[in-house]
């Protein structure tokens, strides 16, 4: 098996319009991910909260880098900050071509404190912290659904 990499990033929503329109666009992002990611052996999770996207993407270096080239040019978001990009031994989202979480926490500001911090430090605390937030929410929702 080729080496696994994990990417964690945060970006600002650039989809304008009402909640329904945003929801439809997010649906289409998820559909693209669920269509494209499996053959590329990519897994991950996406959270949309308080005008921010946070995504974890895991998989082989080549697939991940190619997909990231598409994602970073997507006009539906901007000011993308990569918080972590490194090798990892295990997938955290084994079962998700792209899990979407956090809808139940609409009212909460999940990572506002991260967004406000200026000068993110790649691979520093923020990357780890954001990764943990996303993983915890995913775990929670998984168990609740079960």
């Amino acid at each position: 098996m080729s080496t696994l990499y994990r990417l964690v990033y945060l970006s600002k929503n650039r989809i304008s319009g009402g909640a329904a329109h945003i929801a439809a666009e997010v649906q289409s992002i998820l559909a693209a991910a669920q269509r494209n990611n499996p053959p590329l052996e990519l897994t991950g999770a996406l959270i949309f909260n308080a005008g921010m996207f946070a995504q974890v993407l895991e998989g082989p270096c080549g697939s991940l880098e190619d997909t990231f080239e598409k994602i970073q040019q997507d006009p539906r978001h901007g000011d993308l900050e990569v918080l972590a990009y490194h090798q990892t031994t295990e997938r955290a989202f084994q079962h998700w071509s792209m899990g979407y979480f956090g809808q139940s926490r609409e009212g909460q500001d999940l990572f506002g404190h991260l967004a406000k911090a200026t000068g993110f430090n790649t691979d520093g605390l923020e990357g780890t912290r954001l990764f943990e937030i996303i993983r915890d929410i995913a775990l929670e929702e998984e168990t609740r659904a079960a």
Binding site: L7, E65, L80, V82, Y85
Partner: peptide, 10 residues
């Protein structure tokens, strides 16, 4: 000016 991921590096 946006981030690049190249050969496992940011």
């Amino acid at each position: 000016g946006r981030a690049y991921l190249v050969d496992g590096q940011l």
